[in-house]
Every structure is written in C-alpha cells, then in structure tokens.
Design a protein around this nucleic acid. Structure first.
Length: 639
RNA sequence: GCCGGUGUAGCUCAGGGGUAGAGCAACUGAUUCGUAAUCAGUAGGUCCGCGGUUCGAAUCCGCGCACCGGCACCA
C-alpha cells in the first residue's frame, strides 16, 4: 500500500507502487491531460517515475510557475533535437530554461543565421506534432561518457566527467534524440504545445569563460498559451518603444557620435533633466549631513598602484604620458582621492562618521562590446560618497543610508527594491580575517536595517563585500543602482587614520556608497521607466501655452510669464497652426501640461488646461492655475 | 575583447553595376482656425570610411570604423 497525500490534505491509497500519472488519472481525466510533472516531497519528478513510498505530492500543470519552467526546458530539448536532425554535425552542450524562455548552446563550425531560425522552428513544430514519448534513463557514469564520446559529443562527455562521483547520471530519450539531463521533463513532446518562438542567435562562451571556445546560442521564448506568448511579444514591442536612445532623440535630450565614443552630448532639455536630478540629490545629501567635495580628473598613476586599482583595472583606465614624462590616469573612480582629503590635517574620532560626497566625473575604458547608449558609457558621473567611520558605526550608517535610498527611490517612483549581498570574490585584497570581519559587520548591519537580502556569492568588490540595491521598473525589468560596500582595505593601503578616544592612532572603516549609481545610467533608466512621460517635477518642458488665434498671442506670453514666475519650465507655441496640430505635437512631445488660450480665455483671464494622457479640459482662472501648477511642479523633497 | 547582424536625407525606410527615391520633419507662401496632423510650393545626399574589380560602384570584393543583439567584463 502506498499512501499519497495531496495538497488539499486528502490522502489516497494505492495498491503497490504508482506513478504521478496514475495519481493524476485517478483524480480526473482533465488533470491527467494537463499534467506535466509531479512534485514529490518538495522535489520535481517525471510523471512516469515510480512512487514506492508514502509521499506528499502535487500534480504540476502549465498553470504552475514550475510547469511553465518545465515547458521552457522541454522547448530547449525539442530545439536541440530539431537542430541535430537538420544539422547532424552540430554538438549539443547545455540548454536551460531562463526568464521568459530558453536557450541552447551549440558547437559547430558555421554559426547559425537568423534565416536558419524559421527552419529550426518549423522542425520543432513537427517534433511536437510527432508527440514523442520522453523517457528517463539512469546510466552508469563510464558508459554514459563513452556513449557521448562515440557520438562525437565531447562537451556532454566533459560535463559528465565534471559531475560529482555520487551523482546519478540520467539521460532523456525522445525519438532518436538522447540528451544528458537532470530532468524532470514532460511526458511527451506534444505537451510542449505551440506557444513558442525562436528569437535570436548569439555567441556565448563555453561555460561562460572568455578563454574557452565560442558556442552558438539560439534564444527562444515559450509560454503556457498562445495568449501569453502574444502578450510577451507585445511587451517586447513596448520595451522597444521606450528605448532611451530612441526617446532621447525624439525628445531632443541628448545624442552620441563617433568622435566621442561612450560619451554623451547632453542637449539643453536632457541637461535640464540631469540638473533637476543632481539638484535634488544635492539637497538630499545636505539633509543627510554629507559634505560635498570635488577631486581632480588627472591623478598620478602611483596613487592607483597604491590603492590596488591598477592591479586589477589597469587595462580599463585611460592613462597619459605627459611631455615631462609623468604617468597620469584619468580617474576611474573617486575613493582614493577622497582618502587624500581625509588625510589632510589630523582627524579625531569626533570627526566620525565623516560623510564625503562627490558627483564624481569618472572615465573608464569599457570594452567596446559593453557600451550601450547612455546606460554603459566611458565617461560618467557617479553620485558617490565615502563614509569614514568606526566599526561600531557601520550599523547605524547602514541604517541611515537605507533610509536615504528608500526615500530617493520612492521620490523617483520606484517602490519595488530587492537587496543582494555579495561576498568575497576569488581575486581580492585583504586577509581572510579582514574579510570575515567585513562580511559579518555588513550582514549584521543589513539585519539591523531590516533588509531581506539574497546571497550573491563571490560577487563582492576586490576590497570588500557589498549590498546591491536592485529596483524594478514599470515594465518589470530589474536595474541594479544603489550599492553599499564595507572596506577595511583601502584605509590601510592609503594610510587613512584618526585619533581615538584613548589617543591611539586607528584606521577608519570606509563605506563606499551610491544611490543612483551613475547619473547617465540612472537617467537612461528614468527615461525607459516613464517612457519619456516624466512626472511634472522632472519633465524638461513642464508646460506649453498655445494660443488658438494670433489675437491671443499677447495673452499667451503673459500666461507663460506667470507660470515661469511660479517656477515652471514653460514654452509658448505662437506658430500659425491649428490648435489640433499643436495639441497633437505637444502630446507626442510628452509635455505634461498644455494650456490653450483663445479669445474667450484672453477676455476672461482664464486658461484651458489639458493634461498629457487626458482629452479632458479644465478651465481655470489664471491666478488659480499659476498657484496650483506651481505647487504641483515642486520637487518631492521641497513639498 | 569575442560571435552574429546593420550602416542610403534630420527621422522611419524603399531601391540596387548606368542621372539617388518616398513619407514625416525643415524652409517659403496662403490660411486665424476651440483640443491628436490645413493646403500649396521649395530645398535637402561623401548612399559610414579607405582600398580593389570594372568603361562605369551607393550596388560586387577586401580591410577598417561605428552602432544593434548576445557573450565576457563592470573598481
């Protein structure tokens, strides 16, 4: 007898061993048809695996997140089968499910072209129609290695060799295709359905290491239903429409050109946005008792050697040999310079915590392939600060930083924030004892700040562990912006010290922190998050006054002056165009407020206000509009 | 940096060994109009750059550059 407990708590008994499929069938034909896999005591299993002990199980269908993930994983296998049928000389490597879809990496001489995708996808649909049973097989390790080698599948053989000795080796067979896989899988290829699409080809290094061979990756997307697939494709189109490079051009915010690769030419409207953000941050920093500084662009290379940055990042620094044979670097970051300011004069424990902020203009020679609009550039400005403090102050400083961060993100409209904890990387400065101390201190501070952190092993900075703050935008994409890093190493290397209560010389701890990251990138994120439709306080042009007839021009100019006096960024549109055209153009230009004035308004000293995104009008007295809109346009920290 | 793709007017794009094309935008003129495109006309090009093939190259070939999508990188 086997007793099976279902998620609702009910228990079913079966004579002898049963499979997940047997249980699903005994519950109902509909469920049996929809079943993709089964969760057994918390682990996902194939439906065909035998349950020979009492278990708690749940039948997984495409309605479960796990079910969709299995679907995507199967899509990868079906794609591999299709590729092997069409191009038998191709080796298969790995092919996991990922967010929204799947990919598979193939090794072959000739890369796939986008034109091949249609053919591969058509073959995948045939394989789904064949409804091949997917069968799990357990193989002895050595036999499996020999088998894959005999097929010429060197990568698969290598994967098995690297698996732990005690790992069960499972292969999955569908039709004539057989693949090494941990599983589980759907019962047959037909269960995959038709809601998938191959998206793009790309290069990818074997095992993610750039020293290894480049494989050819095909990305696809797969969903539980055609409707979900279409919704996803629509979302991608929407994402493309909010591309910051496109909106930057359309709204005349900035441009980039060949003569200054990886740099931004900010146009007046973009720079207005930029200044609005920096002005806001400056006020927040002042309120948080930071002191602002400015440090040199060109710094002798020896300082970067002393800090340890040269060891790791020399190739990514712009350097200069001067006429008098000095070796300078354009600063790639601000921390060593801040330590130089800290070192001026004698610092006492009474000076701590000392919060030193800089809108630090930095240059890094980023690899050409990394550049991306204004999001990843070679010239950028960080909202950087270093907090020099004692070990005892790490917790309280972390708490107040988290407060600042939350306030700022909320003001910019981001409320969904995740936190990652990145600990020691393989290549690092400082002793293990120092790292133990730094990691423990940061973790404790994170707990005290009531943060729920996800572990991100091995991803810390070379000088210390870090918290990374990831925010979610309006269409669900993640952006890593804020960071807080604990550093016991740099103060030592650059000889920063303060005099403690007992008169002894001590090392401060440095907390490296940024809220936005870089202004360039953050503005890119803002542009994409709002799709250019900025909240009033951020909009480069907040209001346009548009007369209907030229008789109202003088009054329009007067209205604009009144709004300007109330602190708004306002333009007039006196062109000899119909009001329809003006409404359309300023709506397309994403101007939040449109004030239309005709003869009626000029006579009554009113304005007809139309807000972006609405086709309704509100007629207000000019005085009233001035007060009301002036109030609405105030940045959130000044309300 | 690596793999693949793209590069034609300000923008979106068509064309393709024989005088460079459209729509929108721009400019000029007319129109004074009540909430998402008024009409007419004019002008606009190193077809990414450099070399090669050819009587002739924007088109074919080679090299380079930039950008786009990934990978790797991200102090």
């Amino acid at each position: 007898m086997v007793a099976i407990t279902l998620p609702d708590g009910s228990v079913r008994s079966y004579d002898g061993p049963v499979t997940g499929m047997d249980v699903a069938r005994s519950i109902g034909a509909g469920l049996a048809k929809a079943a993709l896999a089964v969760r057994v005591n918390g682990a996902l299993w194939d439906l065909t695996r035998t349950l020979d002990a009492d278990s708690e199980i749940a039948i997984i269908t495409a309605k479960d997140a796990d079910g969709v993930e299995l679907l995507r994983h199967d899509a990868a296998h079906v794609m591999a089968e299709a590729v092997k049928e069409l191009y038998p000389d191709t080796q298969v490597t790995i092919g996991p499910a990922i967010e929204n879809g799947f990919y598979y990496d193939f090794a072959r001489e000739t890369p796939f072209s986008t034109d091949d995708l249609a053919e591969i996808e058509a073959r995948m649909r045939e394989i789904v129609a064949r409804d091949e049973a997917i069968i799990r097989e357990v193989w002895p390790r050595d036999t499996a290695i020999k088998f894959f080698e005999s097929l010429g599948e060197a990568y698969k053989a290598e994967i098995i060799r690297d698996l732990p000795e005690d790992q069960t080796i499972t292969l999955y067979r569908q039709g004539t295709f057989i693949d090494l896989c941990r599983g589980p899988h759907l019962p047959s290829t037909g269960k995959l359905g038709t809601a998938f699409k191959l998206m793009k080809v790309a290069g990818a290094y074997w095992r993610g290491n750039s020293d290894n061979a480049m494989l050819h990756r095909i990305y696809g997307t797969a969903w539980a239903s055609q409707k979900d697939l279409e919704a996803h494709l629509t979302m991608l189109e929407e994402a493309e429409k909010r591309d910051h490079r496109r909106i930057g051009r359309e709204m005349d915010l900035f441009h980039q050109q060949e003569e200054a690769i990886g740099s931004v030419f900010w146009h007046t409207k973009g720079w207005t946005l930029y200044r609005t953000v920096t002005d806001y941050m400056r006020r927040r920093l002042e309120a948080g008792d930071y002191q602002e500084v400015k440090t040199p662009q060109l710094v002798d290379f020896s300082l970067w050697e002393a800090s340890g940055h040269a060891d790791k990042f020399a190739e990514n620094m712009f350097t200069i040999r001067t006429q008098d044979d000095r070796h300078l670097a354009v600063k790639p970051m601000n921390c060593p310079c801040h330590v130089q300011i800290f070192r001026q004069g004698i610092k006492s424990y009474r000076d701590l915590p000392l919060r030193m902020a800089e809108f630090g203009s930095c240059h890094r020679y980023e690899p050409s392939g990394a550049l991306h609009g204004i999001m990843r550039v070679r010239a950028f400005t960080q909202d950087d600060a270093h907090i020099f403090c004692t070990e005892d102050q790490i917790t309280s400083e972390t708490i107040s930083f988290c407060h600042l961060l939350k306030t700022v993100y909320t003001d910019f409209g981001f409320t969904d924030v995740r936190v990652k904890f990145s600990d020691r990387p393989a290549k690092r400065a400082g002793t293990d004892e120092t790292w133990d101390k730094a990691e423990a201190a940061l973790m404790e501070a994170a707990k005290a700040a009531h943060l729920e952190v996800e572990l991100n092993p091995g991803e810390g900075a070379f000088y210390g562990p870090k918290l990374e703050f990831v925010l979610k935008d309006a269409i669900g994409r993640d952006w890593q912006c804020g960071t807080l890093q604990v550093d016991f190493v740099l103060p030592e290397r650059l000889d920063a010290a303060y005099v403690a209560e007992d008169g002894a010389k001590k090392r401060p701890v440095m907390l490296h922190r940024a809220v936005l990251g870089s202004f360039e990138r953050f503005l890119g994120i803002l542009i994409e998050n709002f799709a250019g439709r900025f909240p009033l306080w951020l909009a480069p042009v907040q209001a346009v006054v548009a007369p209907i007839v030229s008789d109202a021009n003088d009054y329009a100019v007067e209205v604009a002056a009144a709004l300007k006096a109330a602190g708004l960024r306002v333009e007039t549109d006196l062109r000899n165009e119909k009001i329809n055209a003006k409404v359309r153009e300023h709506s397309v230009a994403k101007v939040p407020l449109l004030l239309v004035v005709g003869r009626r308004e000029a006579e009554n000293r009113t304005v007809a206000l139309r807000r972006l995104g609405s086709d309704k009008q509100e007629v207000l007295a000019l005085d009233e509009a001035q007060a009301k809109l002036g109030h609405e346009a105030v940045p959130p920290d000044l309300v």
